[in-house]
């Protein structure tokens, strides 16, 4: 099935921004998406993965080694030839077992030839790409723990059934869920870099436009893709420029102070908030082609980076976003 062009998605600006930031600097951490079903969360994530240019992979490698890493994975892959492959997008189903996620002993080989072989799981498949988990709040707790741990360390370590395997697993984790149906523990939420709230556009023209574009894409996907090719090219360039620039950007001291003040003002627990805020602001500055990180970048990413880290007050109904905006208005006028 052909993917929907990223730039043709109506609305969802915050989600798109978060995805672009994660594409520029995956070290920002995963993106948690809050929103109802059918609001196009996975469409946006898939679209971005499809938009990114294909990555070179050592030929035949099951672990997605880059050509110069060939031979360093558990297989080990031997080919020196590179093959272009689309950026992986792995959709983790709700009922996935630990074996499928981590990888497990290759049963067939073990039983037939007594060979102790490892069958890589979804984590290996997601290496260098995206791992999307719909309804992460309904996923078994131990799986969520495990995923976040691997996402943070960039490495999957398997020690079970007599296997001792480690392989690279660097991916952008995208979780989605509807808080009405059960919440994620605060400890887990905190480990997501960014969070966004997705709502269907409420205004009629946008909704009509969504239907129109979907119909156009369904009727003739190739023509629709061609129509959006230019826009897609612009976004690609923007990402490439951002990726190049982000390493060389520095964060001036006054922006660092701003970040610390903001985190203190909203009561975001822990240091992770500040670190992510900095990283995301840097990625945004790079994305926009700015020469230095400025306060405006910080302010723009603050809701994304902090929203899910505020301490929950059982008796306070005020939304986190409102609290952050209020703090920004008070601090920076």
């Amino acid at each position: 099935m052909s993917r929907f062009p990223f730039s043709a998605i109506v609305g969802q600006d915050e989600m798109k921004l978060a995805l672009l930031i994660a594409a520029v600097d995956p070290a920002v951490g995963g993106v948690m998406v809050f929103g109802d079903r059918g609001t196009g969360k996975s469409t946006a994530a898939r679209a971005l993965a499809a938009l990114l240019p294909p990555i070179p992979i050592a030929d035949g490698c099951r672990y997605g080694c880059t050509p110069d890493q060939a031979g360093t994975c558990p297989d080990p892959c031997t080919s020196t030839r590179a093959r272009k492959s689309p950026v992986p997008f792995v959709d983790l189903p709700l009922g996935a077992t630990e074996d499928r996620v981590l990888g497990a002993l290759d049963l067939e080989k073990a039983l037939r030839s007594g060979e102790k072989a490892f069958e890589p799981g979804l984590l290996a498949k997601a290496h260098r790409g995206f791992l999307y988990i719909d309804e992460i709040n309904l996923l078994e707790d131990h799986l969520v723990d495990l995923l976040l741990d691997v996402a943070a360390s960039g490495e999957n370590v398997v020690e079970r059934e007599g296997l001792s395997i480690r392989h690279r697993a660097r991916f952008v984790l995208i979780g989605s869920g509807n808080p009405e149906e059960g919440e994620l523990r605060p400890q887990l939420l905190d480990r997501f870099g960014l969070s966004v709230e997705v709502r269907t556009p409420k205004d009629i023209p946008s909704r009509v436009e969504i239907m129109r574009r979907c119909a156009a894409q369904e009727a003739d996907a190739t023509a629709f893709a061609a129509e959006w090719a230019e826009e897609e090219g612009k976004i690609l360039k923007q990402i490439a420029r951002g990726q190049k620039k982000v390493a060389s950007l520095t964060v001036p001291d006054d922006v660092l102070t701003d970040a610390a003040e903001l985190c203190a003002a909203v009561g975001a627990d822990g240091l992770r908030g500040e670190l992510t805020l900095m990283r995301a602001a840097k990625a945004l500055a790079a994305l926009r082609g700015a020469k230095a990180v400025r306060r405006e970048h910080l302010v723009d990413v603050a809701p994304l980076a902090l929203r899910h880290r505020l301490r929950r007050d059982v008796l306070d109904e005020t939304g986190s976003t409102v609290r952050i905006e209020r703090a920004i208005a008070e601090l920076f006028g």
Partner: peptide
Amino acid sequence: VATALGIDSVRALL
């Protein structure tokens, strides 16, 4: 009509 009935899902619209 979808808006009047409070239906958010874009899938429903499609």
